[in-house]
Simulated scan of single mutants.
Amino acid sequence: MPFVRIDLRRGKSKEYRKTLGEIVYAAMTALINVPQDDKFQVITEHDREDLNHAESYLGNRYSDDVVFIQITLNAGRSTEMKKAFYKRIVDEYQKQLDGRPDDIVINLVETAKENWSFGHGIAQYAT
C-alpha cells in the first residue's frame, strides 16, 4: 500500500496534477509490484516561497517547477526495480507533461507491513 505525497508549485491545472498522479500510479503498478486499485495519493500545491530547495544538487539544476514525490511503501523492492521506477516516472513526466527531468525529486520511505491500517483500526497486513 504505497502512500504517495506529491508537492509542487501552485498554479498547475487540475489536469496537470491528475496526470502527474497517474504517471506515478502507472509506474508503481508496472514496475514495483503494486496491485491495481492500491492508490492513495495526496497532491499539494505550494506558493513558490514555500518550496525551499537548492538551486542545484548532484548535477541537477532545479527550476520553479520542481516536483517532490515521496512514497511510503512496504520494504522489499530491489535496487534495480527502484531505478527502473524512477526512470519511468521521469520519462513519462517529460513525455506527457513536457517537464524537465531535473525537476523530479523522488524519495521512497520503506516500512514494515504492520505499520499500516486501511480502516476500522485493523492492521490488515500484520500476521
Rank of each mutant, 00 (worst) to 15 (best):
57 Y>T: 10
74 N>T: 12
94 Q>H: 08
81 M>L: 11
78 S>Y: 03
85 F>W: 01
48 R>C: 05
48 R>M: 05
86 Y>F: 15
107 N>W: 07
66 V>H: 12
50 D>T: 04
96 Q>G: 05
51 L>Y: 06
50 D>P: 01
46 H>C: 09
51 L>Q: 10
93 Y>T: 09
81 M>I: 01
101 P>N: 02
97 L>P: 06
55 E>L: 10
96 Q>R: 14
63 S>Q: 04
96 Q>T: 06
76 G>L: 13
97 L>H: 10
46 H>V: 12
45 E>T: 09
94 Q>I: 14
104 I>Y: 04
71 I>P: 03
91 D>Y: 04
65 D>C: 07
69 I>W: 03
94 Q>K: 14
50 D>V: 05
51 L>E: 11
57 Y>R: 15
56 S>Q: 13
55 E>V: 08
58 L>Q: 11
66 V>N: 01
71 I>R: 05
63 S>K: 07
80 E>S: 11
61 R>S: 08
77 R>P: 04
96 Q>F: 01
84 A>G: 02
101 P>K: 01
68 F>P: 00
45 E>K: 08
50 D>A: 12
75 A>G: 08
55 E>D: 15
90 V>H: 00
59 G>F: 09
98 D>H: 15
104 I>M: 11
47 D>M: 05
102 D>H: 11
100 R>I: 11
65 D>F: 10
53 H>K: 12
84 A>S: 07
46 H>R: 14
74 N>A: 13
62 Y>Q: 02
63 S>L: 02
75 A>D: 11
50 D>S: 07
73 L>W: 04
62 Y>A: 00
74 N>C: 12
100 R>Y: 07
58 L>M: 15
80 E>M: 00
86 Y>K: 02
106 I>C: 00
54 A>R: 13
78 S>H: 11
89 I>S: 00
45 E>H: 03
66 V>R: 15
105 V>R: 06
82 K>Y: 01
85 F>G: 01
58 L>N: 13
64 D>N: 15
83 K>M: 05
85 F>E: 00
63 S>G: 08
51 L>T: 09
102 D>K: 03
